[in-house]
Structure formats: C-alpha cells, structure tokens
Design a protein around this nucleic acid. Structure first.
Length: 506
RNA sequence: GGAGCGUUGGUCAAGGGGUUAAGACGCCUCCCUUUCACGGAGGAAUCACGGGUUCGAUUCCCGUACGCUCUACCA
C-alpha cells in the first residue's frame, strides 16, 4: 500500500503572513486533501533573535480565516508533538553529532566576527571545501586540540562537509530533474552555537520524524536543496526522502522581483492576509481581510496564481479546488500579482453570496462608519439593491449609508450649473405633492414624478439627477424611487427641502 | 562573480509541429440603464532573439539575451 500523504507548512513566526506564504499553505493543503492526506503545521522558530510576539497566533488566525484547518499542529496536537521546533532542540543535536561521528559534518570554531572579516577581505568568500582547510575546525585542528576546545566549552557550530565534485540531483514535482555540483555549495551550518539547528538540519530531521511524504516550499529554496538531499542520504536514506515541490514565486506587479510588503505599501494594496501590527516598531499593515476581501475570494485568487485546471473556469470554492488540484498543472514560472484581478475575484464572490451571508459583513461595514441599523427589515432589500455595486465589502458602507442617514455631503455643484426657476418651482411643488401622496411605493412615485415633469414641460431626465443628488448626495446608487420608497416619505421630503435650502444659500 | 531556475498580449493564462493562437483582468467603442454599477455586443494588443530539425515551427533541439532566486550561526 502507498504511504499516506503527509505535507507540512512550516512558517517562521516573524511577522505578518505574506501572500506567497498563504499560497504555499494552500497548495500544501490542496495537495494533501486531494490525495486524502494530512496537513501539518509546524512552527519553525529556531532563530530566537527573530521571534516576534503574537506572530504564531496570527498565523493560526489567518489559516482559520482562509478555512484551512491543520490536522496536526501546536494547537491541534498530534502524534508527533511538539510541533514547535524550539521545543525539539535536543532532538537535532543528536543527529548533528551522528553526522560528525560518521564524517559527514565537523565542528567549526571560527566566530561570526572572524568570518565577517574574511568575507570583507576575500570577494565571494564561502566556507567550503576550498577554504575550510585554512579555517579553525575539527578537520584542520589536531584531534586533541578539538577535544580540548570542546571541553573548554568553546562556542562552536557544526557544519556539513560538502563532498567535492559530486553530482547531487533529485526530481522536483514541478521542475522535473534538477541537479547540482556539490563543489559549488558551501558547508552550511547545521547546528548553531546556541545549540539550535538551522533550517537545513531542522527540515530534514522533522520531515523525517513527522513522516512527511511531499515537501512544498518557495522556489527561493532551490539552491540549498542539495544540502537537504545530502542530509537525507546521510541520515535517513534517499529512498525515504519526501518528494520536493519548489513553488514559483509571486512577483511584484511592476518590475520582476519577488512581491514584498513594501510593494503593497507603495502601490496601495495589501500583501498580508490580515491586519498586522509589528509589536516592536508598532508599524501597522492592513490585510486582505480588513480591506474587505471574502476568504473564498482570497483563496480563489491565490490558487489561480500559478495553477489552473485547463478549462476556462476561474471561480472555485475551496472544496472544488481540493477536487481538481493536481501538481502537473502548476506553473514553473513566477506570476505577477494583479490587484485589479484580485478585486474582480472578490466581486464575483460577493455576487455569489446570498443576502443572508452578506448581512453580517454589511452590518460590520456600516458599524465601522458609526451607523447603527434601527430597522433591520429594510436591510435585505438594501443589500439586494447595492450588491452589484460593491467589489469590496467595505464598499457597502458608502453604497448604503444614505439609507440610514442624511448624506454627509450633497454634491450641489453637480446640480447648480443647470438649475433655474422652473426647476425650483418643480421641486417646490413636488414637496407639496409628495406630502399628499397616499401610497408610498416605487411605481406610484415614479408615475407621479413623470406626470408632474410633463405638466411642467421639463424632461424627466433633467430632474432625475437633481433628485438623486438630493437623496443620496452624489451621482451613484440604485434607482431613485427605490431609494425614496425605502427611506420613506418624511425623509424624502426632508432631504429635498434641505437641498433646496442649500441651493438658494449657495 | 558563481550556481540554479524561468520566459505565450500590459497582467493571469489555454494550447501545442499545420489553429482566425482560447478564455479572464485591465483598456477602448457601442447597447441596456434619464445616476453609478451589473449585464450584453464588439475592438486594440501576444508566442524574447538567433540558429538548426522539418514540406512546415509559437510548439522539438542547441545556443544567445533577458529576468529572477540563492550565495548568513535568517528562514
């Protein structure tokens, strides 16, 4: 029987969760679920200097928002706990020691400062087969000297001893056969002076211990893949190594580089899944969620960045993505992020949401503007009317606030130039007529208005726009008489009166 | 500098030895709508370059160019 598929997403809790990160989780998740496997979330917090308070909780909340639930994690538990690498520290040392004993790794006593100096002195300096003979390590020092240094608790790191001129290759699920010459790769640190493993050792050990069968990560990891392959060979056997998939990068919309938070700030779109405030700098960054994106739209948009099912379908639920996702349709090349397209996905999802589903979001959007809803019975109708005009959830506030309160500003400059006594008289009479109107319904109001216009010998078109502006404040929104019906007789008349006053005062 | 990876309209992309080279976003025009949207109909715009192989290459092969990633006791 085939081994059960197990994948993992392994973020470092160092800050907000980036678009690229979410897409990596998503592909992991889709692949696992498509194949009936498990999705594990592992926290890679081996760099204590970069630990950020709250970042771990933030990651969990992002996943929850996206509808991606891990099968095993710090929060969900599981047979391979702990799922936080800092809590697995002792484990890694054991493997590092084994590598040293078997001659695949060695102790190095050079300090970070000494190496910095080297790097400054020698262009393109690398700690490698070519340079290690001139450095302070257990390969160059006499054995008793090494032992002495170790006894004296001299700080050391353990480095992998990269073989000289060996072909290291593997098959990537996306790229096919990939190969490197080992001479070109430096002797990466495996275990740091503080006893923590580096990423290189930790991934291999944990992927093995957690029985990971398929390992997804960003393309930026490709150059260090030979280190991981070699580690697998030395420690657990190549036949047990997971299949690798190096995902294409998400690129900035202009230029060609990797998309960064800075690009979002610069171009005016979010890059993180949710709001994030850095606790050290207090720097605030808005996320997709708070910008007004539906999780379904966010996920959908991300899935289509580097993958498609070969048909021209573009809108998929998470469930559909799970059903249709296969690796052979993942692209090799990076994809530029396009915010307009992202908004389009959101608009499509808003259209697909029912009024009932939308309601809590609309209430929240209005509440944010300080608008409370005394009469919820109208809300359904309002949402129906306004839905098509919203691409972000936050658009619901400006698109519907005038149903609940006077327009904050009335754009009389749009009325004024074409205003004359005839219109003034028309609206004055309109007020009187409306006051006597017995049935306050869309169709009746429409009919009444047009009859009056005819009587005054003014084209209705010339009067509709002023009326609209009186009621909503600007040139937007659903049909005027729909609005009038909903806000009611009293409000309609009051808003007309107010604007008339504004015009005569201006 | 080195290594690896990549390259179909402005963007996401389908396709793949012979096609009018799909579709979507964006842009433009028109229709619908006496607002703004939604919707509908059109339009402009693409196979990085050079060699092969072939009757025929955007597609296969080889180069070149360009871009990106990595080159930390960060992930």
């Amino acid at each position: 029987m085939e081994k059960k598929v197990r994948v993992r997403f392994a973020p470092s809790p160092t800050g907000g969760l980036h678009l690229g990160g979410v897409r990596t989780v998503l592909f992991n998740y889709l692949f696992a679920k498509h194949n009936g496997g498990d999705f594990i979330l592992r926290i890679e917090d081996t760099d204590q200097t970069r630990f950020v308070e709250g970042a771990e909780e933030y990651i969990f909340e992002c996943l929850k928002w996206c509808g991606i639930e891990p099968d095993e994690s710090v929060l969900h538990g599981g047979p391979h706990a702990p799922y936080r690498q800092s809590e697995r520290k002792a484990l890694y040392k054991e493997y590092a020691d084994r590598l040293v004993k078997e001659g695949y790794a060695y102790y190095a006593f050079d300090t970070a400062e000494e190496l910095d100096v080297k790097r400054k002195e020698i262009p393109n300096f690398q700690y490698s087969h070519a340079t290690r003979t001139g450095l302070k390590n257990s390969l160059t020092l006499p054995p008793d000297e090494t032992l002495k240094l170790l006894d004296e608790q001299t700080p050391y790191v353990i480095r992998i001893k990269m073989p000289d001129n060996e072909e290291v290759s593997f098959t990537d699920m996306i790229r096919g056969h990939v190969s490197f010459n080992s001479s070109l790769v430096d002797d990466k640190v495996l275990l740091k002076a503080d006893g923590m493993p580096t990423y290189h050792l930790a991934v291999v050990v944990d992927d093995h211990l957690m029985e990971i069968t398929h390992a997804f990560r960003g393309e930026e990891w490709l150059p260090s893949a030979p280190v991981h392959v070699l580690l697998w060979k030395y420690l657990f056997g190549l036949e047990n190594m997971p299949e690798w998939a190096h995902l294409p990068l998400i690129l900035k919309p202009d230029g060609n580089g990797k998309l960064s938070k800075r690009d979002g700030d610069r171009l005016g779109f979010p890059v993180f899944a949710m709001n994030w405030t850095d606790p050290r700098s207090n720097e605030f960054t808005q996320g997709f969620r708070e910008r007004g994106f539906l999780p379904e739209a966010f996920i959908n948009m991300l899935a289509l960045l580097g993958w498609n099912d070969g048909t021209d379908q573009e809108i998929y639920s998470l469930q559909e993505l799970v059903e249709k996702f296969t690796m052979d349709r993942v692209h090799k090349g990076g994809a530029k992020f396009n915010y307009d397209k992202a908004k389009w996905f959101n608009q499509e999802w808003i259209k697909r949401y029912s009024t009932e589903q939308l309601k809590p979001y609309v209430k929240a959007a209005l509440a944010e503007q300080g608008i409370s809803i005394p009469d919820e019975s109208k809300l359904d109708r309002i949402i129906e009317l306004v839905k098509d005009r919203c691409t972000l959830l936050s658009d619901f506030a400006p698109q519907s606030s005038f149903f609940f309160q006077h327009p904050a500003e009335v754009d009389i400059t749009a009325i004024k130039p074409k205003w004359d006594d005839k219109k003034q008289q028309f609206f004055a009479e309109l007020i009187r007529t409306l006051e006597l109107t017995p049935v306050w319904k869309h169709d009746d109001l429409d009919k009444e208005f047009k009859e009056m216009a005819a009587a005054h010998q003014i084209k209705p078109g010339e009067l509709m726009l002023p009326l609209r502006i009186m009621l909503v404040g600007g040139k937007f929104g659903p049909g005027v008489f729909d609005i009038a019906e909903i806000i009611g007789k009293e409000q309609t008349i009051e808003r007309i009166k107010n604007t008339l006053k504004l015009i005569s005062n201006a």
